[in-house]
Every structure is written in C-alpha cells, then in structure tokens.
Amino acid sequence: MWQKHEEMQLVEGCKRESRIAQKELFSKLYGRLLSICMRYSDDRDEAEDILQNGFIKVFKSIDNYKGDGSFEGWVKRIVVNTAIDNYRRKKVRPVVTDSELTDRMSDQLEDELEDESVYEKIPISVVMEAVQKLSPAYKTVFNLYVLEGYNHNEISETLGISVGTSKSNLSKARFNLKKILTPLLERISQE
C-alpha cells in the first residue's frame, strides 16, 4: 500500500501533467487494475485497451479528485466504468434464460459438488481464464455482483437490463464457471 503522502505527491504531479508522476502512478496501479480489466474482457488485448482508456479518463479528470476517500478506489471506479462502457459498446444482448432452468442446473451441480471449498485448489490463473470464457453478459453481471458488490437493482440500472435478467445471468455465470472448473478439479484430485 502507498503512504498517503506518497499518493498525494503523485496525484499532485499528475495534476501538473508530470510525465514521471503519470508513469509512476500507472506503473503502481497497472498490475491490480489490469487484473480487473482482464475479468471484464475476453483476452489481454481487450483488457489493455480498457485499461488505457480508463487511465486516459483518470488523467483527464484528475483535477476532480479532491482527496476524499481512497485515490486507488477512485481510479478503480473509473476503470470499472470504462469496462462497463466497453461492454455496452459491444452491444451485447443480455442473455436471458429461464430462471427455473438455471436454478435446476445450479442445484444439479451443487448436488454433485456440495463442498464448494474444493474450488480453492484451482490455480488463480485458471480461474481468470474461466471467467474470461464466460459470455460478456454473464461475466459483467458476475463481476459487478460478486467482485464490485453491486446488488441486482444497481446492476439492472447500470446495464439497462431487468432485475430478473441480472439474477438469471448471475446463476448462469456461476453454473458455467463451475462447468468449466469442475473437470479440472477432478483432474487435480486424481493427481
């Protein structure tokens, strides 16, 4: 974590458009923020594009940051919003599924693998790959709900979909993630 004064120095430097400060800020946040972008995108190229567009917005609007709250949190919000914009630009139709069906599918998987803690054995990089394999609609809802802490009403407003669709997409995202991860888990258990 940064020291507060260090963060302030960089923010002030960025407000003066100091290249060194901008680079320092970018390099400090790159690793964590690229990770966020990766889970909203299909591949690294798309993630890098989101991150770049996000940082352009950060540097353009840095004068708006008044020091209230965490600076990293402020940057992260901009990057997540950029990822959502990117999702909207792709004009992906939200996948709507029969919620009863997805519930049944989820139940079926849960029956097969009651103890979800077994998923802890799966390597981090594989989890990221699995999330990337989800459809844009599923992964966006999953990210907003599970990682950003949005509720379904907020997701509904943010993405312009119904609350039902949000719930359904979340269930399907979980189901598909488990479907991708479970065979791997079985292989790990056998080794």
């Binding site: 690793g31 990089s125 990221m128």
Partner: peptide
C-alpha cells in the same frame, strides 16, 4: 473463493 482468487491476481 472466486472473488478471493481474482482479487489476488496481479500482473
């Protein structure tokens, strides 16, 4: 579990 793993990923 998924959240923890994804949040610990850093490039």
């Amino acid at each position: 579990i998924i959240k923890e793993k994804l949040e610990s990923q850093e490039y």
